[in-house]
């Protein structure tokens, strides 16, 4: 009876995590009879009596409040449909598109065209996974020149870092502008291709080593320019304490 794995072990779907009734299955795990098993490929965390999983793989599932980068894939009568790197697409309706007034029957391509990338915020996700987004809000805008890469959505919290500390360090030390969408799309713009390349390589490195300790110092070393700046709370995998998801 008891726990069968160690904290921060990597487990696969179906793997036995604990036996007996002492533990409670939390996010990413399930109980079957006397056993608690894993539902996903991820990192086990034991939090008191709760056993939960931080997923290592899997596509983005839209959540209200997330800031994402979407690509316009269709223009409908009253809005734009966006592809958001998820099994589900999102709708941006005319009323949420801009602080300007858009008349009925206006040419919507004046605002956002096919293939445009935009930074938007998810305002609603229905039970049937219909997603609504808005462009009204600070920092929400159409993206212009730059490069777009796709990262593992589960690594986004690590790429952003506590209070944005990781991505800030990358931005400052590579002299680039970076916007990280919760859905795994990342926009990068630098003054020259070399600095963009360094930023992208660094992000890929963070992605690869996200689950290992001491990452911030290794990234600081990789970028050069001295030790990483101090962050107040302890580093951890998902940034659970900093409100980022």
């Amino acid at each position: 009876m008891g726990i069968e794995v160690n904290d921060k072990d990597i487990v696969v779907p179906g793997e036995l995590l604990a036996t007996g009734m002492d533990y409670v299955p939390a996010q990413g795990t399930y109980r079957i009879g006397e056993e608690i098993r894993s539902k996903k490929l991820g990192l086990v965390t034991v939090d008191g009596r709760a056993i939960k999983l931080i997923p290592l793989s899997g596509r983005y599932l839209p959540k209200r409040g997330d800031t994402i980068i979407g690509r316009v894939e269709d223009i409908a009568m009253s809005g734009w449909r966006l592809s958001i790197n998820s099994p589900y697409s999102a709708m941006l309706s005319m009323k949420d598109a801009t602080s300007e007034f858009i008349a009925r029957g206006a040419d919507l391509t004046r605002y956002y065209e096919l293939e445009d990338y935009i930074v938007a915020k998810i305002i609603n996700v229905t039970s049937q996974k219909l997603v609504d987004v808005t462009m009204k809000g600070p920092g929400l805008r159409k993206l212009s020149a730059g490069r777009i890469i796709e990262v593992n959505t589960n690594k986004v919290p690590r790429i952003i870092g506590k209070q944005g500390s990781m991505v800030s360090m990358v931005k400052t030390r590579t002299n680039t502008n970076i916007i990280v969408g919760q859905n795994g799309l990342v926009w990068i713009k630098g003054n020259d291709p070399k600095s963009e390349l360094l930023a992208i390589e660094t992000i890929r490195l963070i992605e690869k080593e996200a689950h290992l300790p001491g990452l911030t110092d290794r990234i600081a070393k990789h970028l050069g320019g001295g030790a990483a700046p101090e962050v107040r709370a302890e580093e951890n995998m998902a940034g659970e304490d900093d409100g980022l998801q």
């Binding site: 993206l143 212009s144 020149a145 730059g146 490069r147 020259d192 070399k194 390349l197």
Partner: peptide, 20 residues
């Protein structure tokens, strides 16, 4: 996407591509 394309063309003008 025009914005992304013009960005790549600008980089190519410096002789360096996206992957170095």
């Amino acid at each position: 996407n025009k914005g992304l394309k013009s960005h790549i063309i600008k980089s190519l003008g410096t002789g360096i591509r996206g992957d170095g």
